[in-house]
Structure formats: C-alpha cells, structure tokens
Amino acid sequence: MPAVIETEGLTKQWGDLVAVDSLDLSVEKGECYAFLGRNGSGKSTTARMLLDFIRPTRGTSRLLGGAGSDPTVRARVGYLPGDLNLPRSMTGNDAFDFFGGLSGTTDKDERKSLVDRLDLDPTRPVRELSTGNRRKVGLVVAFMSNPELLILDEPTSGLDPVLQEEFRDLLDERKQTGATIWLTSHVMAEVERVADRVGLIRDGHMAKELSMTELRHQTTGTIRLAFPQVVETSAFEGVAGVTGVRVEDGEIVVTIEGPVAALLSRAGELGASHIETEKRDLDDVFLELFDLKGGAT
C-alpha cells in the first residue's frame, strides 16, 4: 500500500531563500505524524505544497496516492491552515454549508456533534468571532467530512487548554478509525500525546525524524538521593539503567534511562533518607534539539 503522504526531494525556493530543502517524507496510513519546527522553518510551506497552493521548485509530492491538485484527492482530505481566513460575512453555519457543499458533505449529525463538543455558536458571523472561535469553525470544517487524511497546521493555536484537550481526544478518536494525521506545531508537549512519529524541520531541512518512543528516551530523568551517611558514587556503578552519577550539594545525583527498580533497590540497601526525581520534559528536549549553537542533532 502506498504511503498516504509521500514526498521526494521536495524543494521550494524563492530567489536565494530555500524555504524547504530536499524533503523526503513518508507517512503511512493510520499514522499521526507531527512536523515540528520553529516559526519560519518551512512547516506551512510544506503543507501548502502538499495541497498544490504553491508548486515545488524541485521534487514531487503525493497525497493518498494522487496529486494534491486533484479534487478527488482533496475530497478525502481535511485541512486546517495555520492562518485561517474565512469570508467575514459568513456565519459558522454558512461556512459549514458552503465548504461542506463543496466537499459533498451531507452528514449534519457529525457537524452538530463537533459544534457541541467545541462549544461553538455557529450562528454568529465570522467577523464577530475571536481567533479561537474562528479556529473552531475551521476544525469543524476539517473534521466534519470524516476525511481519510487530516492536514492540520498549528491546530491548537488560539484554543484554550480545555479545548486543546478536547481536540486531542478528537484526534485520538480519528486515529482509532484509521485516519492519517499530519500536523505541524512548534510546541513539543502538544504533540506528545497524539503523535506516533515526529519530524524536526530546521531551516527547511529535515533535521531529524524519530518515533515518540525514541523521543521519550531522550527525556532521560535524573534522581537525586540523600543519605544520612556519606555514600560514594562508586556504590551505583553497574546498577541497571544508570548512565551517570555525581555528587551535588552532598547528595548523589543519578541519571537514568529506562526502569528505575534496580536503582531504587540499591538506594534502599544504602539507607536513602530522601528521593527526588527530576525529569526533562519534551519542551526541554525540543529546545536542546533546536539549540542555535549546537544545531539540531
């Protein structure tokens, strides 16, 4: 079965500016792929090339086995742009009718269910809606046709934390039904729950591609242990999972990957009086990966 999204050497160049550079991407059916990068790194440009709004300078892209310019392909895609602009005279209901009509969507139950879940008043004109409420309209339009592929450019920007949670539930449900999801974000924590795989884009290059499992390994934790008596660092050498031991302010600081059972057992034997865990979250990893000095590794 061909990949749902497939690009080969996809490149977009405006004069000297290379917005996207030789991007090779393959997203399988049912996968949730998060495209992560800083502002201006080429995420939206990639989305716009996938949907044929702009044409690549070099390379090719295919969606659902066809061209992004093909209406029959786009009928199977739900899209939410990063900068959503709806005709200002439209109400939410107008937008659902018009864009739903273009997509041949007739299922009003699904649309009503989405409107209720996102707590949206669909009778108000777009011009009166806040940024967050406009994005809700866009989310309803993107999801209401039950598309096979969702292309979501910074989907949760402007949504409050409660709605972000609702949105993630929605994505989970769509994943269960076999939909493929490609979303962009610059917030690592946002994609932590939903993504299966993450591509890190930097200055138009794919800097790194890794599964969420691999990414979580990079969130290696540290455990700080206090003892009533002096304990040498050598006491932790050879304990399973321990990757480093040092003394800091009279306490032992152990870095560990994987299960902590062996370490805790050893600490117990030595009579530890206090245990504190410190874990780098994904945002720390993101910042490190995009460290301007070191570059993406």
């Binding site: 716009r48 709004f53 997509s103």
Partner: peptide
C-alpha cells in the same frame, strides 16, 4: 485575504 486558498483546499479546481 486568504479565503481563496482555503477554498482551494476543498475539492474544487482552480
């Protein structure tokens, strides 16, 4: 205004 691009994400041809 960006509304054209959004419309072209639907199954319509240019």
């Amino acid at each position: 205004t960006g509304t054209l691009e959004y419309m072209l994400s639907k199954p319509v041809t240019r």
